[in-house]
Design a binder for these strands. Structure first.
Lengths: 200, 200
DNA sequence: GATGTTTGCCAACGCTTGTTGACGAACTTA
DNA sequence: TAAGTTCGTCAACAAGCGTTGGCAAACATC
């Protein structure tokens, strides 16, 4: 049998011997991430990704089934959210904005996901899932009223994703020009207020 | 001669007789706006737009030259920014957020532009132009220090575009669920601070 | 009524896309 | 060494794309 190899044996994970083709698989994923981040879903063609990875386009199909499967495999996001429990309440804004900026600048997957999410339904749903599973839980740690958690997490998302959009996707010059500390100094109070301040 | 008719005689403008084909032109633009807003640049095909407008695809080419020309003609954005001069300083945040929300909900062109801007270079540059020509000037009316105008306008853009992104493009459920008054109540102080508060 | 222009449809072009299947080389196992 | 599996290339496909040019009907002008 020679299917699309949907049972990927987690090559990077410690256990399991590394297969001979895993270098190729990794090269494909790296190229895919780069293309998706730079051009979005439709314009990142399988042929271009294969060329970047220096292999034949049909290999992409064999290892990831189809383009959708490649995208799903390429963008696996772990925001690695910090634990806000043992933190002074007044620091959560600064810590979150700092963490968010760091994450975004070292990880092109996030830009890829945002670019794709803007035009692709599957991409948008993926982002919704990340928000629900990784952002809302940490909001639950600091929100005064549990009932307000979704709304407060949502407000935080508007500010942080708006920063990512204008800085890393649209690249508005004055947003790009801001130093990281400036961004933190301005945005931290906003996030702080959305998460912890009493309702207006 | 029978060129792409680049000298469009502004049919809707009061002066100038309305040509026989202007209904077709308008139908094309309306269909294009809808498709671009719903699917982004690449997936909004000329064939689909023509079908929506109930005409032949070749008509689109004759009237707008090519797909790029169609996009340029379809998304002409006027934010109709209010004059902040005769306004109490403490009201600018609320007025701007309210205006922004209204604009965005009655005008699908804005969603089209944001969706396209995320994957298309021309779209991103168009957004930069709107920010530069329509947003920065009104920031200039209320900013204390002229030198800080770009940065403060940029911060405002991160918040407002982040709201548009999560509410109208990605459609995060908790953001969609917010009532307009809630959005204004939460975001107005943020915008107010970005534009008028002393630097942090 | 004849002439020229405008409006629209039709058929086709060249190209790119995702995707498939056959086949040889490289490697593994016995 | 022999058999079987894995890895990779090549050539091709069907479909869809933006785009083009020709031609017929509708209209305007004289």
């Amino acid at each position: 049998m020679n299917g699309p190899d949907s049972s990927s044996p987690s090559p990077a994970s410690g256990s399991g011997t590394r297969r001979r083709s895993d270098d190729t698989r990794d090269a494909i994923l790296a190229a895919a991430r780069e293309r998706f981040a730079a051009e979005g879903y439709e314009r990142a063609t399988i042929r271009a990704i294969a060329k970047d990875a220096a292999i034949d386009p049909s290999m992409v199909m064999r290892y990831y089934g189809n383009k959708e499967g490649l995208f799903a495999a390429a963008v696996a996001v772990d925001l690695a959210m910090p634990d806000l429990g043992p933190l002074p309440r007044q620091d959560v804004g600064r810590v979150l904005v700092t963490h968010f900026l760091g994450m975004w600048e070292e990880n092109e997957v996030l830009t890829a996901l945002l670019r794709v999410g803007a035009t692709n339904q599957a991409g948008a749903e993926r982002m919704q899932g990340i928000f629900r599973d990784q952002v809302m839980p940490i909001a639950r740690q600091v929100c005064p009223d549990p009932e307000q958690v979704p709304a407060r997490a949502a407000l935080t998302a508007t500010q942080l994703l708006g920063l990512a959009l204008t800085r890393y996707v649209l690249r508005f010059p004055p947003v790009v020009a801001l130093a990281r500390e400036e961004v933190v100094a301005w945005l931290a109070p906003t996030v702080q207020r959305y998460l912890t301040a009493p309702s207006p």
